[in-house]
Design a protein around this nucleic acid. Structure first.
Lengths: 106, 106
DNA sequence: TATATATGCAACTTATCGGTTGCACAAGCT
DNA sequence: AGCTTGTGCAACCGATAAGTTGCATATATA
């Protein structure tokens, strides 16, 4: 059951975890304190996020600090790139339409 | 069961449908021909994509042409924006590190 | 009008997902 | 050494998701 980034960010709890550890690394316990769920549940989410390399682990004694690995998010950015061209051209079409209307008003 | 864009693009078949109709509008039957699945299954995916406004419908007689609505993809782009700042700053950190090394070599 | 075609919807099945509970293990603390 | 703390893993459960089959409806076509 190979998981990809799209499935990883589909879950709202996992997106919240990502937002939480984006700025500073946190331990599973610290993360779990921010949610209405069990520590084990968070641990499971972290496992999924780690598997698809969205987060990285920093082992310090018996504690594990999790932090965001932005590199994987770039993959999503690259996926969006394929459609960015479309919406930019559509914007240009709208833009030229607005220009036409503007010219007519003159 | 309100579905959001993250869940919508989590499914690989739905992402393939998005890629397929990105450039030109297509009917459900035409779309289904591209997949190893039933027409009804594709119809279900289209319903989900329509519900969260990722695709739009163009009714022509008894045929329905589906096409991509890029506006909703911008939502994903905006979500990424929150982390784009991070990976750009990390790139800058790497950049300044490389500059330091370069200067030392001199 | 009868038939064929395009589509959506409902019911059912199987697989997977998210959560909980319980346990194991390793690292600190007294 | 014994206790506490931080963590992961496995087993189980209920909900949901994706796919199939069958049917209903509307629009073409003969």
């Amino acid at each position: 059951m190979r998981r990809d980034i799209f499935q990883a960010i589909a879950d709202p709890t996992r997106r919240a975890i990502i937002a939480l550890i984006a700025m500073q690394a946190m331990t599973p316990n610290a993360i779990a304190e921010n949610f209405n769920t069990t520590r084990q549940s968070v641990s499971k989410h972290l496992r999924i996020l780690t598997e698809c390399e969205l987060v990285k682990q920093d082992f310090q004694g018996r504690e594990i600090y999790y932090s965001l690995d932005v590199n994987k998010l770039k993959e999503l950015d690259r996926w969006l790139d394929r459609y960015r061209a479309i919406w930019e051209s559509q914007f240009n079409q709208l833009d030229s339409l607005l220009t036409k209307i503007k010219n007519k008003e003159k």
